[in-house]
Simulated assay, not measured.
Amino acid sequence: MSEIYTFIDLETTGLDYETDQIIEIAAVRTDLTREYGRLQMFVRLEGGRKLPDFITELTGITPDMLSGGSRQELVACALDWFIADTTPVAHNAPFDLSFLYEWEVMPDSFVCTRALAKLVEPTESPSLKDVCARHGIDLTGHHRAMNDVLAAIEVFRKLKPIAEARGIEYRNVVVNSPERPLTFVPNNAKVVEVSANREG
Rank of each mutant, 00 (worst) to 15 (best):
M1G: 14
S2G: 11
Y5Q: 11
I8L: 13
D9T: 11
E11N: 06
T12A: 06
G14I: 14
L15W: 14
D16M: 12
T19V: 11
I22F: 05
R29Q: 12
R29T: 00
T30S: 15
D31A: 11
L32N: 05
Y36M: 06
G37M: 07
R38Q: 10
Q40M: 10
L45G: 04
E46R: 12
G47A: 08
G48C: 03
G48L: 04
L51Y: 09
P52Y: 14
I55A: 12
T56A: 07
T56D: 08
E57S: 13
P63E: 11
P63K: 06
P63M: 10
D64A: 02
S67C: 04
S70D: 01
Q72V: 06
Q72K: 10
A76G: 04
A78Q: 00
A78G: 03
A78Y: 01
L79I: 01
F82M: 08
F82L: 07
T86N: 00
V89F: 03
F95K: 05
L97H: 03
S98F: 01
Y101F: 09
E102H: 09
E102D: 08
E104R: 14
D108R: 08
S109C: 09
S109T: 14
C112Q: 03
T113V: 06
K118N: 04
K118I: 03
K118W: 04
P122H: 05
E124M: 08
S127L: 02
K129F: 11
D130P: 01
I137N: 12
L139H: 14
T140I: 02
G141V: 05
H143V: 09
A145R: 00
A145D: 01
M146D: 08
A151F: 13
I153Q: 15
F156W: 05
K158H: 15
P161E: 13
A163N: 09
E164G: 04
E164M: 10
R166P: 01
G167M: 15
I168S: 03
E169G: 13
V175S: 01
N176P: 02
R180M: 05
R180I: 08
L182K: 11
T183S: 12
F184W: 10
F184G: 11
V185H: 01
N187F: 08
N187H: 06
N187D: 08
V191N: 13
V192L: 15
V192P: 13
N197C: 02
